[in-house]
Design a protein around this nucleic acid. Structure first.
Ligand SMILES: [Mn+2]
Ligand SMILES: [Mn+2]
Ligand SMILES: [Mn+2]
Ligand SMILES: [Mn+2]
Lengths: 223, 223
DNA sequence: ACATTTTTTTAGACAAGCCTAAATCATATA
DNA sequence: TATATGATTTAGGCTTGTCTAAAAAAATGT
């Protein structure tokens, strides 16, 4: 099992995350935006990853992960999310600060390290953003989720994760009082622009745009 | 304050450590051995580091650190040793396992991370090998030390650090019962080969070669 | 259907870090 | 002091990962 460079790992994790957003293939430009690298460079890298049989790559068409690529991506994501838990639980970072740091820590590949860290953290199942942490074998304990966007008026649920880990987005959520675990009730929806009015924890009314609601996952309460 | 690559950091830390062994300049070949890289490549890198004014470099002569280079080296060493403490104290690694892992972790350069880690560990002053951890400003709290080699027969002291962090050496010390903090009394010395007979913790007799005694530092008990 | 725009790939270049082989310098020795 | 030996540097080359500019393919709009 030949080892991957930090750059290769970043591409694999990025492709996995983009695909996890629903799609079954990703474009060069989407990857380019996500890894903050010019499309020409991405094309180069995709050729190399395809060469190593980590992705399926058809020119001008798009990219998906092979079984091996998926397995590798999940191991990287496991490291990434465990470090995020460490940073929040032990070092008292806030959830908007940990993504960038974990992007560096995720590439440290001492075999025992990840297992010991996992144990030390008490085998957490989810990271600070509500995303599931794969186990050693790359298995995900997934919960049934629905986008906040999709929750009908009158329905309530619990916020279980967010799909944008940028500091800007997370700080915005902090500001309006939305957090992982919060109870959310959809009070009203505006068809015109897709914005919603929410009732958080039976306490606080919050207006959110369609963009925001599209980046929040909810587990519905039985209604 | 322009940021250094992992490779540059490894060279700086290595040069610092070699110089800390007593010498005031280091040779290309010594560095080559320490970073496990061919001498020709070391020459290349030395030119670059001199260009950046991190080292004083005179061709065919040797290398020393500039003030800036020393400062940088101490910051890298701070990260390295703090991670070593983390690995031993929190993740229950043994002291012979942590050097290689810390060699990777030391390059993670999130500014807040090191301070938080330091705090989390309780501001340790020494790493698992007895080496002092520089503070944020690069200051070292050094204790007066003497090589075990140099301790006269009949004198006793406390083992405070070891200057070889290889797994082989540290495992050997574990095996014979030598550890940081142990009381050591020199029972006998053989002039011929420089080997010694020691009495550890008033309990156990141990024979050590000159090589071993040269890699152990002792703080003498007032006699 | 054709022209325009957007996306993607190719071509060519560059810096970082490494290597081997061939100079060159320093030194130890005869 | 001339020479052999060892240490160091230079020359030339390679891989990785990036870039810009140009070409090619795909998508879009009229
Ligand atoms: Mn990363
Ligand atoms: Mn996360
Ligand atoms: Mn290192
Ligand atoms: Mn150490």
């Amino acid at each position: 099992m030949i080892s991957l460079s930090p750059a290769e790992e970043n591409y694999l994790r990025t492709i996995y995350n983009l695909i996890a957003e629903g799609l079954e293939k990703v474009s060069t430009n989407e990857i380019s935006a996500a890894v903050n690298t010019k499309a020409a460079s991405v094309s180069d890298m995709l050729k190399k990853l395809a060469e190593k049989e980590l992705i399926d790559y058809r020119k001008y068409y798009g990219v998906s992960l092979t079984e091996e690529g998926r397995k590798r991506a999940l191991h990287i994501i496991r490291r990434h999310r465990l470090w995020e838990v460490f940073l929040v639980d032990k070092l008292k970072f806030s959830w908007d600060e940990v993504n960038v740091i974990a992007e560096e820590l995720e590439h440290v590949k001492a075999p025992l390290l990840v297992r010991r860290l996992d144990e030390y953290l008490g085998f957490p199942k989810f990271d600070p953003h509500g995303d599931p942490i794969p186990d050693e074998f790359g298995e995900l304990s997934s919960k049934p989720r629905i986008l906040l966007q999709e929750v009908p008026v009158g329905q309530s649920g619990k916020i279980v994760s967010v799909s944008d880990s940028s500091a800007a987005f997370l700080k915005y959520l902090d500001k309006v009082g939305i957090y992982i675990g919060a109870k959310v009730l959809v009070l009203e929806k505006t068809d015109y622009d897709g914005s919603q009015e929410l009732f958080i924890d039976n306490q606080k009314k919050v207006f959110v745009s369609k963009e925001v609601a599209g980046n929040i996952q909810v587990m519905l309460h039985p209604s």
